[in-house]
Amino acid sequence: DETGKELVLVLYDYQEKSPREVTIKKGDILTLLNSTNKDWWKIEVNDRQGFVPAAYLKKLD
């Protein structure tokens, strides 16, 4: 059920640097789980959840 889920576009590649982070690729469109922290957003990638720098993402309307 995708209702109410926010999507984000990945602006730059990011390689995870800790187990709490996930790797993302430029151009991916992913589900945003939590954006309350202005610097690190929690997203879902391939059934994995983790954090990436918010500056690497853009919210889609």
Score class of each variant (00 low, 15 high):
residue 60 L to Y: 08
residue 55 A to I: 11
residue 16 E to P: 10
residue 5 K to V: 12
residue 43 I to T: 02
residue 46 N to Q: 14
residue 4 G to D: 11
residue 38 K to D: 09
residue 48 R to N: 05
residue 59 K to E: 04
residue 26 K to E: 07
residue 20 R to G: 15
residue 31 T to Y: 11
residue 61 D to L: 11
residue 17 K to S: 09
residue 22 V to R: 03
residue 6 E to L: 13
residue 17 K to G: 07
residue 31 T to W: 15
residue 31 T to G: 07
residue 29 I to F: 05
residue 4 G to I: 14
residue 54 A to G: 04
residue 21 E to I: 03
residue 11 L to F: 02
residue 29 I to C: 06
residue 9 L to V: 10
residue 10 V to K: 00
residue 48 R to P: 00
residue 17 K to A: 10
residue 38 K to R: 12
residue 28 D to G: 06
residue 36 T to P: 04
residue 15 Q to H: 14
residue 6 E to M: 14
residue 53 P to E: 01
residue 47 D to K: 10
residue 4 G to T: 13
residue 57 L to D: 01
residue 26 K to N: 05
residue 57 L to F: 03
residue 36 T to N: 12
residue 53 P to N: 02
residue 31 T to L: 15
residue 38 K to S: 12
residue 9 L to Y: 11
residue 16 E to H: 07
residue 11 L to P: 00
residue 57 L to A: 01
residue 10 V to C: 10
residue 61 D to R: 12
residue 54 A to P: 04
residue 27 G to E: 02
residue 4 G to N: 12
residue 20 R to Q: 12
residue 51 F to M: 07
residue 57 L to Q: 00
residue 47 D to Y: 09
residue 46 N to L: 14
residue 35 S to L: 04
residue 28 D to P: 01
residue 21 E to C: 05
residue 37 N to F: 08
residue 16 E to V: 07
residue 45 V to P: 00
residue 13 D to N: 09
residue 58 K to F: 09
residue 13 D to V: 02
residue 45 V to G: 07
residue 6 E to Q: 15
residue 45 V to N: 08
residue 25 K to P: 01
residue 11 L to K: 05
residue 43 I to E: 00
residue 4 G to C: 14
residue 5 K to P: 12
residue 9 L to S: 04
residue 4 G to Q: 14
residue 3 T to Y: 14
residue 43 I to S: 00
residue 58 K to E: 09
residue 51 F to Q: 03
residue 50 G to I: 08
residue 13 D to Q: 03
residue 19 P to C: 08
residue 57 L to H: 00
residue 26 K to V: 06
residue 30 L to R: 12
residue 31 T to I: 15
residue 52 V to A: 12
residue 12 Y to K: 15
residue 51 F to P: 00
residue 27 G to V: 01
residue 30 L to M: 05
residue 41 W to Q: 00
residue 7 L to C: 10
residue 50 G to L: 07
residue 43 I to H: 00
residue 60 L to K: 04
residue 32 L to K: 01
residue 37 N to Q: 08
residue 10 V to Y: 01
residue 16 E to D: 05
residue 24 I to K: 00
residue 5 K to W: 10
residue 57 L to Y: 01
residue 58 K to C: 15
residue 50 G to R: 04
residue 39 D to E: 13
residue 27 G to A: 03
residue 22 V to E: 01
residue 56 Y to V: 11
residue 10 V to T: 05
residue 7 L to G: 03
residue 2 E to M: 14
residue 45 V to S: 09
residue 30 L to F: 09
residue 21 E to F: 04
residue 19 P to I: 09
residue 15 Q to I: 14
residue 48 R to C: 05
residue 17 K to C: 10
residue 12 Y to C: 13
residue 23 T to G: 04
residue 20 R to W: 15
residue 41 W to D: 00
residue 55 A to C: 14
residue 42 K to G: 04
residue 12 Y to L: 09
residue 46 N to Y: 14
residue 46 N to P: 06
residue 56 Y to T: 08
residue 50 G to T: 05
residue 14 Y to M: 01
residue 52 V to F: 01
residue 52 V to M: 02
residue 45 V to R: 13
residue 29 I to K: 05
residue 29 I to A: 02
residue 30 L to Y: 11
residue 13 D to H: 06
residue 22 V to I: 09
residue 32 L to R: 01
residue 38 K to M: 10
residue 25 K to R: 12
residue 39 D to V: 15
residue 15 Q to K: 13
residue 18 S to N: 11
residue 53 P to G: 01
residue 46 N to I: 10
residue 16 E to L: 08
residue 16 E to R: 12
residue 20 R to H: 13
residue 14 Y to P: 00
residue 6 E to I: 15
residue 51 F to E: 04
residue 40 W to S: 03
residue 9 L to F: 08
residue 26 K to G: 06
residue 22 V to A: 08
residue 19 P to F: 07
residue 49 Q to W: 08
residue 25 K to L: 07
residue 37 N to I: 05
residue 59 K to M: 08
residue 39 D to C: 15
residue 46 N to E: 14
residue 29 I to N: 02
residue 12 Y to W: 12
residue 23 T to P: 03
residue 19 P to S: 11
residue 24 I to C: 08
residue 34 N to R: 07
residue 36 T to A: 12
residue 29 I to W: 04
residue 27 G to C: 08
residue 56 Y to M: 08
residue 61 D to Y: 11
residue 25 K to E: 06
residue 6 E to H: 15
residue 38 K to P: 15
residue 51 F to T: 03
residue 18 S to T: 13
residue 3 T to F: 12
residue 12 Y to N: 09
residue 17 K to D: 06
residue 39 D to G: 09
residue 52 V to R: 01
residue 54 A to F: 02
residue 58 K to S: 09
residue 56 Y to G: 05
residue 16 E to C: 11
residue 44 E to Y: 06
residue 45 V to K: 15
residue 54 A to V: 05
residue 44 E to M: 11
residue 6 E to P: 10
residue 49 Q to C: 09
residue 35 S to C: 10
residue 46 N to M: 14
residue 56 Y to F: 11
residue 8 V to E: 00
residue 44 E to T: 07
residue 35 S to K: 07
residue 43 I to K: 00
residue 15 Q to F: 15
residue 3 T to P: 12
residue 32 L to S: 02
residue 46 N to D: 15
residue 23 T to I: 03
residue 61 D to M: 11
residue 12 Y to S: 09
residue 45 V to A: 12
residue 5 K to C: 11
residue 40 W to T: 02
residue 18 S to V: 05
residue 35 S to V: 06
residue 39 D to I: 15
residue 7 L to T: 08
residue 54 A to C: 07
residue 27 G to N: 06
residue 44 E to L: 11
residue 44 E to N: 06
residue 2 E to H: 15
residue 15 Q to R: 10
residue 1 D to S: 13
residue 14 Y to A: 01
residue 26 K to L: 04
residue 58 K to L: 14
residue 1 D to K: 10
residue 45 V to M: 10
residue 58 K to N: 05
residue 59 K to W: 06
residue 13 D to L: 02
residue 18 S to R: 10
residue 1 D to I: 14
residue 42 K to P: 00
residue 40 W to G: 01
residue 46 N to F: 14
residue 50 G to Q: 03
residue 7 L to M: 11
residue 23 T to W: 03
residue 25 K to H: 13
residue 27 G to Q: 02
residue 36 T to G: 09
residue 23 T to R: 04
residue 14 Y to L: 02
residue 30 L to N: 07
residue 37 N to M: 08
residue 40 W to R: 03
residue 12 Y to Q: 13
residue 52 V to L: 01
residue 42 K to L: 15
residue 32 L to E: 00
residue 14 Y to I: 01
residue 25 K to S: 09
residue 37 N to R: 08
residue 15 Q to N: 12
residue 24 I to D: 00
residue 18 S to I: 05
residue 38 K to H: 12
residue 31 T to H: 11
residue 42 K to M: 14
residue 16 E to N: 06
residue 42 K to T: 06
residue 47 D to L: 09
residue 16 E to G: 13
residue 24 I to E: 00
residue 8 V to Q: 01
residue 8 V to A: 07
residue 11 L to G: 01
residue 4 G to L: 14
residue 2 E to L: 13
residue 58 K to A: 10
residue 26 K to I: 05
residue 1 D to N: 14
residue 52 V to N: 01
residue 8 V to W: 06
residue 53 P to H: 02
residue 3 T to K: 13
residue 44 E to A: 10
residue 1 D to V: 14
residue 6 E to G: 13
residue 46 N to V: 11
residue 10 V to M: 01
residue 44 E to Q: 13
residue 38 K to Q: 13
residue 59 K to F: 07
